[in-house]
């Protein structure tokens, strides 16, 4: 590190990384005492544990066909009942959670990283702003699910393509949030000090401004996770998600579409699990917002 960069770094305000132990403890205690956040975190943790541990400890096979057990309603043996192929819905939902959560997480990582890069560059460099944000504005003009459907249809069915489609659809949102934070901090005193000290633009942007712009982004990423889980299920339901017979949550519900009168549990039970997961993520996001950014 050069001397000027070291001086500039020393004038940067406290970020989560730079925070002292008392400040960190205060935030942690606020997070733990937030009722909604605790409930949300508990729900999400249970779903994640079920997704990770479930397939290891469960005896059932999500693909096993059994014509003797077709259309069985929920019971002690089959908690969520069985479908038209006699497959156990609960086993499929547990295996499906693996896929649906993985897709949600991948979308958060890609949309978060891409959006952060684009938003940071657009917010800091005025010349790039005009071009990058016009592209983002144009992407935002497409209803996100329609855009994702269009991209997924063009790229072809497959898990990776669903992730790409949803990431592109949600990237403009993260780019706008990061851009707004970067623009606010661009003329802050500590940034000016770094500039005067001769620190390069990229270092100012990625070392000083970005770490201080993360709170709104982290909050929004929890909501993007929730939307991605919902959108992935919707894509599968419409036939452009991960190809069947993969037990994604949307595929399981789509399987039950033709039997909603005779066997409503095929759609109702997985739907409740999706709703609960998204509810948990929303509660968690709301809590994070209350604690980390009370202005929002």
């Amino acid at each position: 590190m050069t001397r000027s960069a070291a001086i500039a770094d020393s004038v940067a305000p406290a970020t989560v990384d730079h925070m002292g132990a008392p400040a960190r403890r205060r935030i942690l205690s606020k997070l733990l005492s937030h009722k909604g956040l605790t409930i949300g975190a508990t729900i999400v943790s249970l779903v994640v544990i079920a997704a990770l541990v479930g397939p290891l400890v469960m005896q059932g096979d999500p693909m096993k066909l059994s014509f003797r057990t077709r259309f069985l309603p929920p019971s002690a043996e089959h908690w969520f009942g069985t479908d038209h192929y006699g497959r156990d819905i609960f086993t499929r939902v547990i295996y499906g959670s693996h896929l649906s959560l993985a897709i949600g997480l991948a979308v958060v990582l890609i949309a978060g990283t891409g959006g952060t890069l684009i938003g940071a560059l657009a917010g800091y460099f005025k010349r790039l702003d005009a071009i990058l944000m016009r592209v983002m504005d144009a992407l935002m003009a497409f209803p996100s699910l329609m855009l994702a459907i269009g991209i997924a249809a063009a790229l072809g069915s497959g898990i990776a393509n669903v992730v790409i489609a949803l990431s592109v659809a949600y990237m403009p949102r993260t780019a706008r949030i990061v851009r707004a934070s970067v623009m606010t901090l661009r003329s802050a005193e500590f940034v000016e000090s770094a500039r005067v000290a001769g620190v390069g633009h990229m270092r100012i942007l990625f070392r000083h401004i970005l770490p201080n712009s993360m709170a709104p982004l982290i909050i929004d990423l929890t909501f993007i996770f929730a939307y991605a889980v919902l959108a992935d299920a919707a894509l599968s339901f419409l036939g452009v998600g991960p190809p069947p017979p993969a037990p994604s949550w949307g595929n399981i519900i789509a399987d039950g579409r033709d039997y909603i009168v005779e066997a409503p549990w095929i759609t109702i039970c997985p739907g409740i699990v999706i709703g609960l997961t998204v509810l948990g993520l929303n509660l968690f996001g709301d809590g994070l917002r209350d604690v980390l950014d009370p202005r929002l």
Binding site: A234, F237, I260, V278
Partner: peptide
């Protein structure tokens, strides 16, 4: 309101059909 933004639209539609139509 939280339930509204959490339950999948297609699931609500199917539940609505079951209740109000069937």
């Amino acid at each position: 309101a939280l339930l509204g933004v959490s339950l999948p639209t297609f699931w609500l539609s199917i539940a609505g059909i079951l209740l109000f139509s069937v």
